[in-house]
C-alpha cells in the first residue's frame, strides 16, 4: 500500500470535518477525492500531506507511520489550489527551490539542479518560460509550473488540491487529459481533490466519494457510476431520476417495468440513459408527454412531463442517441410510453 489512513478524525470547533476515515490506496493509482464543498476532502488531503494534524488516527506512507512527521519529512509533492508559486522567484527558481533547500550533503550541484529543472520544464512543456515570474504566466501555465515544482523533489506521493478549480473551462479540459497522461508516464501515486464529478470520472483510476466527513464509497469510476452504494453517491454522480414507490402511482410504475411487487427498496434511482422512450399506441392512457429536448452533442436529453392525479407534475429526464431520436420523430406535447431498463434501489 502506498497510502494507508487509519481511523482519521478531525474537528474544527464543533464542526466534525472528518469522522473515522479508513482508506487504503495502492501504489501507482490516480485517486480522486470527490465530494461537495465542506465534506472534508481538502482537510483529508492536508492531513495526508502533514499540512494539518489529525485529532485522532494514523497516516502511513509506504508502510511507515508518518503521523508525527512534519511535512518536510514526508516526501510528498503538494500542488496548492491557487498554486502558491513564490512570486518573487522566476519559474526556474521556483522549481529549483525544493532542491536548493536540501541539507548540504544531499543537495545536488547547481549543474545537476539546472539539468533537473530543465527536464521538468520539458516534461510540462514550458521550457521557454524558465525566466518568467509567476504573475507573467497564464493560469494553466502556473498550474503546470506548480506541478513541476512539486515533482522536482521526486515525491513518493503527489497531492493536488482542486488542481483545475481556478482555471477556465477550456483550459481545464486540456489539462485533465494532460494530467492523466502525465500520470501514466510517471506512475507516481497521486491524489487529487475535486468537487466536480465529471472531472473525477474523466481523470482518475479510483474515486473516493466523501460526504459530511465520511467515506460514502470507494471504487473505479464505472463502479461508482453503475453501482452506487448510497442514495447520496447516486445523486452526486451524474443525473438521476428519483421515484418513491410509496408516494408514486404503483400502477404507472409497474407499467414502466419497475417491479413493485417485491421491491429492493423504497426509492428507485434511474439514470436518464436507462429510460427508453417509445411512441405510444394509446395516447389517452399514457400520462407522460414530451415537454422539451436539448442536444448534448451525440445524445438528446428529453424532458418528459407527467401529469398524475397522485403526485404533482414532475419532470423525468431521459437520454437517447441522436439517430434514434430522429427516427422516432416525436413532437412537442406528444404522449409517449416509458420503459425503465435499470434502477438502483435505496431505502
Amino acid at each position: 500500500m502506498s497510502i494507508t489512513l487509519h481511523k482519521i478524525s478531525k474537528q474544527f470547533g464543533t464542526f466534525k470535518a472528518l469522522d473515522n476515515i479508513n482508506l487504503e490506496i495502492p501504489e501507482g493509482e490516480l485517486v480522486a477525492l470527490l465530494g461537495p464543498s465542506g465534506c472534508g476532502k481538502t482537510t483529508l488531503l492536508r492531513i495526508i500531506a502533514g499540512l494539518e494534524q489529525a485529532d485522532q488516527g494514523d497516516v502511513f506512507l509506504k508502510g511507515d507511520n508518518v503521523t508525527d512527521q512534519p511535512v518536510k519529512n514526508r516526501q510528498i509533492g503538494f500542488v496548492f489550489q491557487h498554486y502558491a508559486l513564490f512570486r518573487h522567484m522566476t519559474v526556474f527558481d521556483n522549481i529549483a527551490f525544493g532542491l536548493r533547500v536540501k541539507p548540504r550533503k544531499q543537495r545536488p550541484s547547481e549543474a545537476q539542479i539546472r539539468d533537473k529543472v530543465h527536464s521538468l520544464l520539458q516534461l510540462v512543456q514550458l521550457d521557454w518560460l524558465h525566466d518568467r515570474f509567476p504573475d507573467q504566466l497564464s493560469g494553466g501555465q502556473r498550474q503546470r509550473i506548480a506541478l513541476a515544482r512539486a515533482l522536482a523533489v521526486e515525491p513518493s506521493v503527489l497531492l493536488l488540491d482542486e488542481p483545475f478549480g481556478a482555471l477556465d473551462a477550456s483550459v481545464r479540459k486540456d489539462l485533465r487529459l494532460w494530467l492523466r497522461h502525465l500520470h501514466h508516464e510517471l506512475n507516481v501515486t497521486s491524489i487529487f481533490v475535486t468537487h466536480d464529478q465529471e472531472e473525477a470520472m474523466e481523470v482518475s483510476s479510483q474515486i473516493v466519494v466523501l460526504n459530511h466527513g465520511k467515506i460514502e464509497q470507494k471504487g473505479t469510476p464505472s463502479e461508482i457510476y453503475d453501482q452506487p452504494k448510497s442514495d447520496f453517491v447516486s445523486r452526486f454522480i451524474g443525473q438521476t431520476n428519483v421515484f418513491h414507490i410509496e408516494d408514486d402511482d404503483h400502477g404507472w410504475l409497474k407499467s414502466t417495468g419497475i417491479i413493485v411487487d417485491d421491491p429492493k427498496g423504497i426509492v428507485a434511482h434511474v439514470r436518464p440513459h436507462n429510460i427508453s422512450v417509445e411512441k405510444t399506441a394509446d395516447p389517452a392512457n399514457s400520462p407522460v408527454y414530451l415537454k422539451d429536448w436539448q442536444h448534448l452533442g451525440g445524445t438528446i436529453r428529453l424532458e418528459l412531463q407527467r401529469n398524475g392525479n397522485h403526485s404533482p407534475a414532475t419532470t423525468i429526464y431521459a437520454e437517447m442517441p441522436n439517430e434514434q431520436f430522429k427516427e422516432l420523430a416525436l413532437q412537442k406535447g406528444e404522449h409517449v410510453t416509458l420503459r425503465i431498463k435499470h434502477a438502483h434501489w435505496f431505502n
Partner: peptide
C-alpha cells in the same frame, strides 16, 4: 500558502 508550499518542498 507560499510558506506551506516551501515547507512541503522540504524547507526548514
Amino acid at each position: 500558502e507560499e510558506e506551506e508550499a516551501a515547507l512541503s518542498l522540504g524547507a526548514s
